[in-house]
């Protein structure tokens, strides 16, 4: 065309030349590599830190059997302190489980409505609203649990205390639902329209298209949304601290007060002597939470990979 073709010799040089674009490319590769590695370094750093704080206790004092099997968490007992977290695990698990029962139908329903049915202005305003809901600080949710849900539960169910699994589960579920909705809606939106067109062209109804085609195409993202909610439930501290009643208890019904692992650390860490058994026991709970989170994420990853390879 307009320029003359360079001669063969010049071309042979060009294929080995380190030009500006080549250098920028290499530089960006290095920066991206550092970015990726630093995330791993930070995670390992955090793990080392919490492990070191709890490690002496973990090796010398801690009786694993007692730690996981005993429901007695009495770290400040002068004669015979006991460090059993079974009741705390039960508290966290029951609240998270109930929260997911609340959040999954709400968030999937909302995501399907926003993603598949709502159009134009309605859709845009709903998305903004959901994102606003996701930004409400957890202490506000705890406040709602304390001052609105509490008397409501006492009145409705005629129970003496309204701060219990039901209260915290509903609060946590409502709290996790917006972010789960947002992620699930992204997953639905990522399903190409030509899938919907192809399915609708075969005479499938709206619901059949959503159920058979859209949901199965988006199931990785939806599963990711649910597991993010589970992780949120395990890690949430303030709202749970305020709404559960913070009483050590293995719940027999949703009307029992419980105490969560995270809330225990938050409430007690400030009052312990650094390095004491109690202090180290709290860090051991931290290690346990870290391991749980790791296992949840790893499982999620493996499930998603399994689905992808099918």
């Amino acid at each position: 065309m307009s320029e003359q073709n360079p001669s063969s010799v010049e071309i042979m040089d060009a294929f080995d030349r380190r030009d500006l674009a080549w250098f920028i490319d290499k530089l960006v590769q290095v920066l991206v590599f550092i970015g990726g590695i630093s995330a791993i370094v930070f995670i390992i750093g955090i793990f080392i830190f919490i492990t070191m704080e709890g490690f002496g206790f973990l090796l010398d004092t801690l009786d694993f059997r007692e730690f996981f099997m005993s429901p007695w968490w009495e770290p400040t007992d002068e004669d015979e302190p006991s460090f059993g977290i079974l009741a705390l695990i039960a508290g966290t698990a029951s609240v998270t489980g109930l929260a997911m029962l609340v959040a999954i139908p709400f968030s999937l329903g909302a995501a399907i409505y926003i993603g598949e049915f709502a159009t134009g202005k309605k859709r845009e305003s709903l998305k903004v609203l959901v994102e606003l809901l996701a930004a409400i600080p957890s202490v506000v949710w705890g406040f709602i649990g304390l001052s609105i849900m509490n008397p409501l539960i006492i009145e409705l169910f005629d129970v003496p205390v309204g701060l219990n699994v039901l209260n915290a589960g509903v609060i946590l579920g409502l709290m996790a639902a917006p972010i789960m909705t947002s992620i699930a809606e992204d997953a639905l939106k990522a399903v190409p329209d030509r899938y919907r067109e192809a399915a609708e062209a075969m005479g499938a109804t709206r619901w059949q298209v959503i159920f058979k085609v859209v949901l199965s195409a988006a199931k990785n993202g939806l599963l990711g949304a649910v597991l993010l909610g589970v992780g949120r439930g395990f890690g949430e501290t303030m709202a749970v601290l305020m709404a559960t009643g913070h009483a050590i208890n293995i719940p027999g019904s949703v009307f029992d007060s419980v105490r969560a692992l995270t809330a225990t650390i938050a409430a007690e860490l400030g009052e312990t002597a650094v390095g004491s058994d109690h202090y180290q026991a709290l860090f051991t709970i931290g290690i346990f939470l870290f391991v749980i989170t790791f296992v949840i994420n790893l499982t999620a990853d493996l499930i998603v990979r399994g689905i992808r390879n099918k």
Binding site: S8, I11, M12, F15, D19, W22
Partner: peptide, 18 residues
Amino acid sequence: FNGRDVYNLRNVYALRSR
């Protein structure tokens, strides 16, 4: 390509741009 082994060159972008 032009007598040059494309599996043994440093700047593959220069190759692709041609």
